[in-house]
Write a protein that binds this DNA or RNA. Structure first.
Lengths: 165, 165
DNA sequence: TCTTGACCTCAAGCGCGCTTGAGGTTGCAG
DNA sequence: CTGCAACCTCAAGCGCGCTTGAGGTCAAGA
């Protein structure tokens, strides 16, 4: 097997990571992974590259761009296993990212839940469900289904009755 | 105020939704929202468009494409409030999406957690942390940090203790 | 040694989700 | 009626994350 040397060809890395060679070259161009070259100019990857690729994919799942992933991996060595400290630091950054993302989704979920369950299906009183006339607060970008809490109904153009749950 | 008619201009919808007019025109082109036109050809939106836009943005948060969002809103009327049944159906589709996404993230989180906490920081025994030598199973795309469970180390192509130094 | 598939570079292209710009029209306030 | 901001269409462009293709080289098995 060509695979038994301690360096991987791009084809091998591709097979193992599930990413196309073109994608790996692209990652390398962006500085996400690193390779050495044979005398003839072909890429050879250290095994650590496989972990880095996995990292990048996971990063994308959490919503990071490739550039952000690159920065996130700043503390990880290119061709060696990271030590505990390095790993812990990077991973903890992640936990926060992930937690934030989960919280965001749970907020969204609860809002949809509440909307169905709050008994306000008359569609006039539920500010979540029917926010049209209390909008334009909180500056551009306020969208209830996303992060923002509905504003107090103070200057709303429509009579709002608190949605009893 | 120009806003008090029951139809919104694109500028008003833009201000209230936080999206640029160009984005709204684009959404309309894709069939995500709908407008009527004045005699002169300018767009006028029903208030329901605001809800639809919020919906789209939320959909994007959950990871849907605009096309998927369009399909997801298939059950919602263009220019009036949806009824309970319509809403419930659409929203429940969402719950599943959101739940799946959350589960995915929690899986990822737990893996990172475990990696730090499992005591395997020798970096040789932890298959999550150091999966290089058990990879290439599960077909292309197997990446431990994502959804896949690490495979049993049985038929691995390599001796478990390479990587000298 | 020869063969052949895997590899190389460079440039262009694609799909998504918009934005920008040119060139022209509408509609409301004054 | 006039002025001017807001609107219109259409076409092109952008950033991201890759893929595709042309044209050529490398390296390992027979």
């Amino acid at each position: 097997m060509t695979a038994l040397r301690d360096r991987l060809t791009i084809g091998e890395l591709s097979a193992r990571s599930g990413l196309a060679p073109s994608a790996l070259r692209y990652y390398e161009e962006l500085g996400l992974i690193h390779s050495e070259r044979t005398a003839g100019g072909q890429r050879r990857y250290a095994r650590a590259a496989l972990r880095r690729v996995a990292f990048v994919r996971a990063a994308q799942q959490v919503g990071l761009s490739l550039e952000e992933a690159r920065r996130a991996m700043g503390g990880l060595p290119q061709d060696r296993s990271p030590n505990a400290r390095e790993w812990a630091r990077v991973a903890s950054t992640w936990q926060h990212r992930i937690d934030a993302r989960i919280a965001e989704l749970e907020r969204l979920r609860r809002k949809l839940d509440g909307c169905i369950g709050c008994g306000c299906l008359s569609l006039r009183t539920c500010r979540l469900y029917n926010p049209d006339d209390a909008a334009a607060d909180g500056g551009p970008g306020a969208r209830y289904l996303l992060g923002d809490e509905p504003p107090e109904p103070a200057e709303s153009a429509e009579p709002a009755e608190p949605a009893g749950g």
